[in-house]
Structure formats: structure tokens, C-alpha cells
């Protein structure tokens, strides 16, 4: 049976807001899925010509390469402060900061909390994979109790290094944020939920509602020393026990 190419309908393609540059992420890592969701959201909202992305330090340091929008690469932990500067200078731009757990919840703690507390009208995507991926798998502020990393070779001991920090819950205590949610990407249902959350977080900004934070639980098969399927299962069965999924604030 032959099928005419002319009659084929394209039902799936790369979002126009993505460049197609080769990814620097490891196989099985969730950053790629999340990048696609953000690109699709920018397409759907028709905002690529007025979007500015803020790339962090960490595995997403090259994030400025993936999107067809203006972008900055900034100092470790400062993405939310830089996003504040861009947005205050040009309120008509749509500004998103893409930050890992070390960037957002450790070295950038002050910048992250205060941007949220001022209710900056920005969108923050916070990728929580419980490890410093780029530097070789060291402990993150979100590393689970007992989790082995290159700086907790015997597992994270809370007596020495404290507990995994539930940063989004801290942000959720503030008056100003309009949307704070924790999502995951370990199965298609979660991918759909995350897609809805990202869309809402961008829409809030476009509608000038205020600060939105989407925390996304992601895998790091490389530094977790797990196969991708096993890593997905780990998020579903273990990580979500420490970092429960769902909306923490929804004032939209």
C-alpha cells in the first residue's frame, strides 16, 4: 500500500519557539521534556517575540540555545533578581527564569524568596533533581536523607547536612505569589499536568497577575546511577514522598 505524502497531515512537530540546537542534556534526563513543554507554551500563547529567558548556572547553563527568544545567561543563583531587573525595565516583556535546585534553593535563596515576596510578575521554573548534575553529582539542598552523592558518599546524614529543603512550601507561605505548584514528568499523565501548570504560570504573567513558580521533579539518571526507567520509578515512588505533588498556592 502506498500513501501519498501530500495527503499526510503533520500531527506532531518541534515547537516553533525551539531552535533545534543539539541538546547538552544526558539521555533520560527530564530537562529535554521540560524544554519542549516551555517551547510549546510559548508557541501556544504566541509570545516568542516578547519573551526573555534567563539561563542559570548548572546543567541548564546552555538554556539560551534552545529557545528562539532573547535570553541572558547570568550568575549562579541570581536568575530571579536578573529577571526582576528585566521585567521592571520592560514590563511588556514575558520573562522566565529557569533554575536548578542548587541555583534556586541554595546559592540563590535570598534572590528566590525576595523576588517571590515582591510578587514580581515573572515565571520561575525550578527544576529539582536532588543533585548538582553539572559539577559531577554533589549534594543539593534537595538531596534526600540517605541519598549518596559525591559529597555525601555515605548518604546524606541530617545530623551533619540537614534535611532536603521544601523550598516551594517556603515560597507558599508568602502573601504575594499567585501560583506555586510542584509537578513531575515521570509518566504521560504528569507530563500533561506539568504542561498545564507551565501554561498557567506563563498565562498569569501575560495577564499581569504576578509571581508564578512551577517546581518540577526531574531525574538525573547519570548522577543517580540509575537507568532512565528506574529513575522515573524512583521519582514516582520515593521522591514524591518527600516532595508531594500538587498546587501549594493558586490565587489565579
Amino acid at each position: 500500500m502506498s500513501v501519498s505524502v501530500e495527503r499526510m497531515v503533520k500531527v506532531f512537530e518541534r515547537p516553533r519557539s525551539l531552535t533545534g540546537a543539539h541538546s547538552t542534556y544526558c539521555p533520560g534526563c527530564h530537562h529535554g521534556i521540560l524544554t519542549r513543554i516551555i517551547g510549546q507554551t510559548i508557541d501556544d500563547l504566541g509570545i516568542v517575540e516578547r519573551t526573555v529567558g534567563i539561563a542559570p548556572v548548572g546543567c541548564a547553563v546552555f538554556a539560551y540555545r534552545w529557545y528562539r527568544c532573547d535570553a541572558l545567561q547570568v550568575a549562579h543563583g541570581r536568575a530571579s533578581a536578573v529577571a526582576t531587573g528585566v521585567k521592571r525595565a520592560r514590563p511588556d516583556l514575558v520573562v522566565f527564569a529557569y533554575q536548578g535546585d542548587g541555583d534556586f534553593a541554595s546559592i540563590g535563596t535570598a534572590e528566590s524568596i525576595h523576588a517571590a515576596n515582591r510578587g514580581e510578575n515573572i515565571t520561575v521554573i525550578f527544576v529539582n533533581n536532588q543533585v548538582y548534575g553539572m559539577t559531577g553529582g554533589e549534594m543539593a539542598p534537595t538531596t534526600l536523607v540517605g541519598q549518596k552523592t559525591t559529597t555525601t558518599p555515605d548518604g546524606r546524614d541530617p545530623a551533619l547536612f540537614g534535611y532536603p529543603i521544601r523550598f516551594s512550601e517556603m515560597i507558599a507561605q508568602l502573601e504575594a505569589p499567585v501560583y506555586v505548584t510542584r509537578q513531575a514528568l515521570f509518566d504521560t499523565k504528569r507530563i500533561q499536568e506539568t504542561t498545564k501548570a507551565i501554561r498557567k504560570a506563563f498565562t498569569n504573567q501575560v495577564e499581569r497577575k504576578g509571581y508564578s513558580l512551577v517546581e518540577v521533579l526531574a531525574t538525573c539518571p547519570t548522577n543517580w546511577h540509575m537507568k532512565p526507567v528506574e529513575a522515573n520509578r524512583h521519582v514516582a515512588e520515593v521522591v514524591t514522598k518527600v516532595f508531594p505533588l500538587g498546587d501549594l498556592v493558586n490565587r489565579g
Binding site: 547570568v74 550568575a75 541570581r78 536578573v82 528585566v86 535570598a110 534572590e111
Partner: peptide, 12 residues
């Protein structure tokens, strides 16, 4: 944070 905000505004 202040100098990082300057970074953002200058970039804009």
C-alpha cells in the same frame, strides 16, 4: 541582588 537587578535592567 541589587547588582543582579542592574544586570537585568541593563540587558533590557
Amino acid at each position: 541582588a541589587a547588582i543582579s537587578m542592574v544586570h537585568g535592567a541593563s540587558a533590557a
